[in-house]
């Protein structure tokens, strides 16, 4: 009895300490975005004696011609269509795989699972050459168009798993009521898989929002920069001027993801545990 409860107590202490270590960098980032350069460097204290309050407004305005307002709008222009199209296309394809038998189904399904393992690095260059030929460089089309074709097997698989959990009797009774297969999807199944749709949307939002590699490859003009690119720009540009502005914009750039994470936590954990890849 005492053994078990002391064990539990030890677990709590351990987990709290670890949690503190895990989260401390983020707290430091937030607090330091209000500090002066002297307090950011060479000090182990979390709180400083003097604070500056203009780091956010100055950082937001940026140093060059375009500020973070532009970068935020750009990122939304890229992320939102990508998220919506990913959800729509993945649902349709997952429905096809989970509810119908058709020629070559097994082969196609295995192919889809194989693409989960296909390293992006292998397809990156021909894609770039293709998009270049299409005149899509320096636009958001390389992000948006592929998402309309359900190119992420991760999401399809996640939704297939979810569809499999919904009883087929639902479809059958709807068929008897005269629904065709598309109406069954829209009217019967979609309302039931809202949690899974949320999961897909949230994951895709955060991954696309944080994406750096594709952004740096495809977007070249500052006017079209995403938040990731803008942040790197300010890191390079502000050579030792005011680091708090860089930190402030780092905070701002992760705020949408943190908000989404806390608001939709349930879906996150659900999503990652039903399929659970990546991260």
């Amino acid at each position: 009895m005492t053994h078990a409860s002391s064990n539990k107590w030890l677990s709590y202490v351990l987990l709290t300490l670890l949690g503190f270590v895990m989260i401390y960098p983020l707290i430091w980032l937030f607090v330091s975005s209000f500090k002066t350069n002297q307090d950011i460097f060479g000090s182990s204290k979390l709180f400083a004696d003097t604070y500056v309050w203009n780091s956010y407004s100055l950082g937001w305005a940026g140093t060059g011609q375009y500020g973070f307002q532009q970068f935020f709008v750009n990122t939304l222009k890229l992320v939102l269509p990508t998220v919506v199209l990913t959800i729509v296309s993945s649902v349709i394809v997952a429905y096809g795989f989970s509810r119908f038998t058709f020629p070559l189904r097994t082969l196609l399904f295995s192919l889809m699972m194989a693409t989960l393992m296909l390293p992006d690095a292998t397809v990156m260059i021909p894609r770039y050459i293709l998009f270049n030929k299409l005149g899509w460089l320096d636009t958001y089309l390389p992000f948006i168009v592929p998402s309309a074709f359900a190119t992420s097997a991760f999401f399809i698989y996640m939704l297939i798993q979810f569809f499999r959990g919904l009883p087929r009797e639902l479809d059958e009774s709807a068929t008897i009521d005269g629904c065709n297969s598309f109406m069954i999807l829209i009217r019967v199944l979609l309302p039931l898989c809202k949690p899974a749709l949320f999961s897909v949307g949230i994951f895709q939002f955060i991954w696309t929002w944080n994406d750096f590699f594709n952004s740096i490859i495809y977007i070249s003009s500052v006017k079209k920069f995403t938040v990731s690119l803008g942040l790197r720009l300010s890191l390079d540009a502000s050579s030792a001027v005011s680091w708090n502005q860089v930190l402030a914009m780092s905070v701002v750039s992760v705020v949408p993801c943190i908000l989404l994470f806390f608001l939709a936590q349930k879906y996150f954990v659900e999503g990652i545990s039903t399929t659970g890849l990546k991260g």
Binding site: G96, F100, M112, L130, F149, T151
Partner: peptide, 30 residues
């Protein structure tokens, strides 16, 4: 009915061909 499923997965098939399979083979050629 046999082919209806294929219609639903068609977007993915096209995506596979254009954005995955073709680049995969093309990168070997390049």
């Amino acid at each position: 009915f046999r082919y209806i499923g294929l219609i639903y997965v068609l977007p993915w098939i096209l995506g596979l061909l254009i954005f995955q399979l073709y680049p995969f083979i093309a990168s070997f050629y390049y």
